[in-house]
Simulated scan of single mutants.
Amino acid sequence: MTKESPDLYPVARLAAAQEATAAAGLDALLLTPGPDLRYVTGYEALPLERLTCLVLPARGEAFLMVPRLELAAAEHSPASRLGIEFVSWEETDDPYAAVAARLGAVGKVGLADRMWAMQSLRFRDALPGAEQVLAGTVLRGLRMRKSPAEVAALREAGAAIDAVHAQVPGFLKAGRTEREVGRDIAEAILAAGHATVDFVIVGSGPNGASPHHELSDRVIQAGEPIVVDIGGQMPSGYCSDSTRVYSIGEPPAGFTKYYEVLRRAQEAACAAVRPGVPCEEIDAAAREVIAAEGYGDYFIHRTGHGIGLETHEEPYIVAGNTEPMAPGFAFSVEPGIYMPGAHGARIEDILVCTEDGGERVNHRPRDLVVV
């Protein structure tokens, strides 16, 4: 599957986004380079200080404002299938004023969630009478419910990162640094078919108690558990994310005890996935198992996050999120237990809500891997 796939970035998505814009009471969406623009058009535009912007009025014709030097790239992107006008601008033009002139009087516009502040402020000046809100409030309902093609892209990403985890035991040896291991993993992520490496976390010993530790020059020791959380973006644009825990020889007894609790908590949360279940109940399913065994204070983050064109997107699997699960929702289930100064553990799979439950896209064993 490639980023050019018409199933992955269908032409009909533009009309769906326009209908959602009108239904939300907005006059237009202004989508600059980032996941919102790519979702609607398939165009992976370069994020530059020069303005590239899809202007999507609630009523009327959409157009893509693009710097002249980026016009050829835009014309060769999936956006060329949409049948919209490409409006190129020269270095001495003011593209913000040009967008405002074409839009006319507007009262409320949605700005891409990842729009740079310098661009949102320029739009504020160019459209002084317009209230600015996040385009994500309009697009969230579309982006959360993955199409069959998007689910296939996530399966492909899951298989690719699983292939990397299969190689990790060969990279882990006492005496190597986290950074050395991380370098090998990053190379394997690209070799497995990813277009980019988004993150590599290798948390050995006490560093495993910091959920977002990433890498350091710490030397890995025998008898230590190691948290390996890795992910990247595929050529399709869709992301992978999976965590497994390894140990150089037998880990401490206390670690083995809570790792089994964690494994049961992750299974409980995965089993809770089905349409209609509030997102917070999946979080509660994992948290209740951990709290019942006395480790509740050591589970310090939400159970999961949505995934798609971004590693972290809606829906979030966290207390207070009453959004009901629906078929097509894709998200992580990744409870963790972290013992400050000692070690930590996290088990993470990506799941997709189906008509009658949840499908994992990661299939590596979830038991502790002793190297």
Results as ranks from 00 to 15, higher is better:
Ala79Trp: 04
Val151Arg: 15
Gly304Asp: 06
Met339Arg: 12
Phe329Pro: 01
Pro251Ser: 06
Thr303Pro: 05
Leu14Gln: 01
Ala16Pro: 03
His363Phe: 14
Ala15Gln: 13
Glu359Asn: 07
Leu71Tyr: 11
Ala192Trp: 00
Thr41Asp: 02
Val370Glu: 00
Ala286Arg: 08
Gly182Pro: 01
Ala345Thr: 03
Val200Trp: 01
Arg274Lys: 14
Leu190Cys: 03
Arg360Ile: 02
Tyr258Ser: 09
Pro225Cys: 04
Pro10Cys: 08
Leu103Glu: 07
Val55Gly: 07
Thr354Asp: 05
Val369Leu: 03
Arg102Trp: 07
Met1Arg: 11
Ala209Met: 08
Ala17Asn: 01
Glu280Thr: 09
Ile189Asn: 00
Ser77Ile: 07
Ala130Gln: 07
Pro10Glu: 09
Pro128Thr: 07
Trp116Ala: 14
Ser210Glu: 15
Ser204Asp: 13
Val200Phe: 03
Ser204Trp: 03
Gln221Ser: 11
Gly158Ile: 01
Arg68His: 12
Ala135Asp: 06
Val151Asp: 08
Leu30Ile: 11
Leu111Asn: 05
Arg264Ala: 13
Leu71Val: 12
Pro57Gln: 07
Arg102Ile: 06
Glu90His: 12
Glu131Phe: 10
Ala22Cys: 11
Tyr246Ala: 00
Val197Met: 01
Ser240Pro: 02
Glu91Val: 15
Val361Asn: 04
Arg124Asn: 08
Ile185Phe: 01
Gln132Glu: 11
Pro335Asn: 02
Gln167Phe: 01
Ala286Lys: 09
Ala152Asn: 09
Gly237Ser: 10
Glu359Cys: 08
Pro327Ala: 14
Ser216Gly: 12
Val181Cys: 01
Ile248Asn: 04
Asn321Pro: 09
Ala186Met: 03
Val371Asp: 00
His76Ser: 15
Tyr9Ser: 05
Leu69Phe: 15
Leu30His: 04
Pro327Arg: 15
Glu359Thr: 08
Thr137Arg: 15
Thr256Gly: 15
Arg244Thr: 00
Thr32Arg: 05
Thr92Ala: 15
Thr41Tyr: 04
Ala130Lys: 06
Trp89Val: 10
Ala222Met: 12
Tyr338Gln: 10
Leu30Glu: 02
Gly304Leu: 09
Ala160Val: 03
Glu180Pro: 02
Val40Glu: 03
Ala135Trp: 06
Ile84Pro: 03
Gly208Cys: 09
Ala98Thr: 13
Ser80Cys: 11
Tyr259Met: 01
Val273Pro: 01
Ala112Asp: 09
Ala265Trp: 04
Val370Trp: 00
Glu70Gly: 10
Ala73Asp: 15
Ala74Phe: 06
Val168Asn: 00
Leu262Ala: 07
Ala186Leu: 02
Phe171Met: 02
Gly336Arg: 03
Ala23Arg: 14
Glu90Phe: 12
Gly25Ala: 05
Leu134Pro: 13
Gln119Phe: 09
Glu131Arg: 14
Leu121Pro: 02
Glu310Gly: 03
Gly60Ser: 12
Gly25Lys: 03
Pro47Leu: 09
Ser88Asn: 11
Glu323Cys: 14
Phe86Trp: 10
Arg366Trp: 09
Met339His: 10
Pro47Asp: 10
Ala265Glu: 05
Glu19Ser: 15
His305Arg: 13
Ser120Arg: 13
Lys108Asp: 02
Tyr295Phe: 13
Arg274Val: 04
Glu75Asn: 11
Val333Glu: 04
Pro211Arg: 14
Ile307His: 02
Thr177Cys: 05
Tyr338Asp: 06
Ile307Phe: 01
Ala319Trp: 10
Glu260Cys: 08
Arg59Ser: 15
Val219Phe: 07
Cys53Met: 14
Arg124Ile: 05
Gly296Met: 07
Ala98Lys: 12
